[in-house]
Computed example of a mutant assay.
Amino acid sequence: MSQVWLITGSSRGLGREFAIAALEAGHKVAATARKVSDLEDLQKTYGENVLPIALDVTNEAQAYEAVQSTIAKFGRLDVLVNNAGYGNVAPVEDTSLAEFREQIETNLFGTIILSKAALPHFREQKSGHFIQVTSIAGRMGPIGRAPYAAAKWGVEGFSETLAKEVAPFGVKVTLVEPGGFRTDFAGASTSLQEGRPEYDETVGKTARFQRDFNGKQPGDPKRAAAALLKIASEQNPPFRLIVGSDAYNAIEKNDLAKMEAAKEWKELSIFTDFPKESA
């Protein structure tokens, strides 16, 4: 069945592949980017099935207008893909508070703002699917990406709460957690700062690896888009979908280690309860 999608960050990377895949599958897409000129080729190729929208995801008025314009053009909205985002590499010590705020505004508040803009429509039509593109950084803290991880962990927590609140309306929420994909996310879209010498073996090493690994990531953006189409067509989609073998392996190892650490300190954890009254 044909759906109406609104995808943020459609000008390049995974967002562009998501838009193309949805259009090729016969869906209608409201594609957004900061500069609407970056979407002209999509409209030339797919004509009236594309609605190009200029959108800064941190702008509440623009977010509301994007949702309303989509509904006005296509009559409804079925899938909102909160994809827009970026993450730079630098030590916490060398990252300004302004940079923290900018990344959190885009990656976290951008998702919250668009979700809130679409929510009344989804509730009223008793259907809809929020697809929140987070990251492996939403499950484990990668060295050098503290602002990005803080934002993506926030998206995960926000979405867990959102999913429980909207389930009675027939509205679905899925967190998509990619690992490394061959997009410009780790290239032109990212600033890689090794930081001061004291961080050479941590952040410096990470920045150098990122530069060398760019273009060699295991993830195929087209296959990620196919996976997105799959979950958007499901009656009971997963709440979380890990995307990429590197992400799956790292998250599995990380989560198992967390549970083992929790068990090690279980006695101290439960010690903090009031003592049980003796019979």
Rank of each mutant, 00 (worst) to 15 (best):
F181D: 06
F185M: 08
F122M: 12
E252D: 13
I113Q: 00
L108K: 03
M1D: 11
A84I: 10
F271D: 11
A257L: 10
S69W: 08
A54I: 00
E99I: 00
F109P: 04
G157H: 09
I7C: 05
E234W: 02
I7G: 02
F185S: 01
I113S: 02
K276M: 12
A188D: 11
R12Y: 14
I131N: 00
D78T: 08
R76M: 08
A118N: 06
E105I: 07
T190K: 15
K73S: 11
E252Y: 01
A54M: 07
V79T: 09
T134Y: 11
I20A: 10
V171G: 02
K73Q: 15
L77H: 02
G179I: 09
A207G: 07
G187C: 10
S2M: 13
E264L: 10
S10T: 13
V29R: 04
E124F: 06
L192W: 05
K205A: 07
A63E: 06
D94P: 02
E277W: 09
T8D: 08
L77S: 03
F213T: 07
Q103M: 15
E48Q: 14
E252A: 04
V36F: 00
G47I: 06
G75N: 06
W265S: 10
L77M: 11
W265D: 03
T70V: 11
E165W: 06
A279M: 08
T190Q: 15
K164Q: 14
A25W: 00
K116V: 10
L23R: 12
P178W: 03
D78Y: 04
N49P: 04
K230I: 03
D212S: 15
G195N: 13
L51Q: 08
W5G: 02
A30R: 06
A117Y: 04
G157L: 01
L192C: 03
R76N: 14
L162R: 07
L108S: 05
I71C: 13
A250G: 09
G141C: 05
E160T: 01
A261K: 01
A247C: 09
K172A: 09
P221E: 08
L229E: 05
S115Y: 06
N236S: 11
V173M: 04
P178C: 12
L42M: 10
L114T: 02
S37T: 15
E267H: 02
A30K: 04
G154R: 00
D56R: 08
K205F: 11
A149S: 15
V173Q: 01
R34P: 05
